[in-house]
Design a protein around this nucleic acid. Structure first.
Lengths: 341, 341
DNA sequence: CTGTTAGCGCATTCAC
DNA sequence: GTGAATGCGCTAACAG
């Protein structure tokens, strides 16, 4: 592959002239420009990405970092990524999906600075190894989700109002007469579980009712969402037959709940109401009965995060911003008032 | 941010020693190694990705290129990407999703060599601007799907046996007594439409029957899959009341078919059989009735493509390989024998 | 086992 | 408007 020198010689001009033709950072006469471009085309020359980066310190690449163990994207991540990509597309950035395993990164050979201009961190955890003062001061960073306590005022983030959403869902169920509400929360180490749990508890408090602590359980990482929803629902309904409603973390988990309910020969919603934090699937309507859920607008989460990040990359000031994406309860019939026996 | 010189000076060694400590490309004594690492940690030093790349010509980044207009990932692309990411994860590569618009790339400033070691091209078209002799000789490239005719023997690719799958689906319907089979094919400019159409036609030929050419239609790019499936089914069923079966390109398109059928007050499968090329959604079962479809194993498409690409990057020989991912018909009840009236 | 030197390919001062 | 020199931060080839 030809380099800038080859082109310069072949065109009979200097390197800097060729450079300027491509970067447009200083005016070059029309004749020279055309000559250089023609020669470049003939030689199949394109400026070397990494050499340019080394000189300019800019890659025009955004990073999307998800926890390595969770290298499987869910529907939620997918549509979120579509939002990020949309923004990348419009601003001329490419997206680098980070998939390096912790073990891989432990090797010294692989300890390298990141090749991105900025990074979006997904699925933050209470103790998140990706976050420390050094990394976030090294490069612009935006979190999707709730940052750990100590980073709340240090780093920009985009999140749903999970407290509010959980409050609304729980209040809705309480208003329908439910008291024993099983809460299949996100994994305990994820920050999102804090907010949702808070909303759940506040809803009880607001009605001066008390919740049963044993009805709040957290997803285990070693099970799939469907499997966890299935097994836990079976177990909890047997141990606590007074449960009349379930709040599931995701629609996949709710699918597990549906399966358990079928196996127990119960019916939704007459004997058990189900609500999920999720609108990820275009097939949500295909649940039988259709699943009531919260619309999280994950695509917006993605595009707003990308916007924040690009803004942060391009501006001189390090402002800490927060964007709250509204959620909305969508009632599709899987939850109803308690049936008196 | 500290650079290699700072570390070398602070540790009282040479640059190349520091370099070797991090790259492990030549042995360094234990004492020196530890000293250097300690100093590096104190200075928060990490080797600069771009500088290293410039010197080594290796980025350890794979590219995933989808057509820019289709910047929205579907379920199919998602699970495919999960396959790619899995392979990246295991081999220490990162994945760069290419989202640069054609207009953006027309600007000379943005004409830059690609920052990847190799690239996976998705959704190939009959005339595909991404493909030409120069680009594929510049860097390793693997296609997911059927390459355009002239690249068939020049470039490695991973694909389903779409001819066979379409043949099987069509044969299955013909065996059930269907004769007027509406085929909602992929967009005409996509190479996949060729193979599927071929399979459809061959199935008729094998039974010495003739198909009605007007029953093969192609998705229009300006409509969503659901919308296209819906509108076209309505229109075609009105114009051709003798149609008893529909083959849809994707499950989303089939969802449109279901909606049209509902609107026409018909029932599936007694009055219309439906089959789709797709198993993308975990909710496929939730179609009412459940949708019969072909399992394409898209995750395997992704991981095999990544394997091919990594192999090609790491080997000296440019071998042209092809991997065929098996498909499988999954019968779930949306297709049945023709009901005599 | 370690140090010295010379690039990698481009952008960016300066001069003119 | 264009050219010459310097540097970005690292690796690699050559010494020793």
């Amino acid at each position: 592959m030809a380099n800038i020198d080859d082109v310069a010689k072949a065109a009979g001009v200097s390197k800097s002239t060729v450079s300027s033709v491509f970067s447009k950072k200083r005016p070059i006469s029309k004749e020279v420009t055309e000559l250089v471009l023609k020669v470049a085309r003939d030689l199949n020359y394109k400026p070397n990405y990494w050499a340019r980066t080394l000189a300019t310190k800019e890659t025009r690449i955004l990073g999307l970092n998800m926890q390595a163990e969770k290298v499987k994207f869910s529907q939620f991540h997918l549509s979120l990524m579509n939002g990020v990509l949309q923004e990348c597309y419009e601003n001329g950035y490419q997206l680098l999906v980070n998939t390096l395993s912790p073990e891989f990164l432990k090797d010294i050979q692989n300890q390298v600075s990141s090749p991105v201009d900025g990074e979006i961190l997904m699925d933050p955890e209470k103790k998140d190894s990706r976050l420390n003062r050094d990394t976030i001061s090294d490069r612009p960073t935006v979190i999707i989700g709730k940052p750990p306590e100590e980073f709340e005022h240090v780093i920009s983030y985009v999140d749903n109002d999970n407290v509010g959403i959980a409050f609304d869902v729980t209040t809705y169920l309480l208003d329908d007469g439910h008291e024993q509400i099983l809460f299949l929360n996100a994994p305990n180490h994820r920050t999102v579980s804090i907010d949702r749990e808070l909303g759940y508890k506040r809803a009880f408090l607001a009605k001066s009712k008390s919740h049963s602590p044993e009805l709040i359980v957290y997803k285990k990482e070693n099970l799939t969402s469907v499997e966890y929803g299935y097994q836990t629902t079976l177990k909890m309904l047997r141990e606590h037959p007074t449960i009349t409603a379930v709040i599931a973390d995701t629609d996949k988990m709710a699918l597990g709940v549906y399966r358990a309910v079928k196996e127990l020969n119960l019916s939704i919603p007459s004997q058990l109401s189900v609500f999920a934090f999720s609108d990820h699937s275009i097939f949500a309507k295909e649940f039988d009965p259709p699943l009531s859920s919260a619309k999280l607008n994950s695509e917006l989460l993605g595009s707003e995060a990308a916007k924040l990040l690009i803004e942060q990359i391009q501006s001189k000031h390090k402002l800490v911003k927060r964007v709250v994406i509204p959620g909305e309860l969508i009632h599709r019939g899987s939850a109803s008032t308690v049936q008196k026996e």
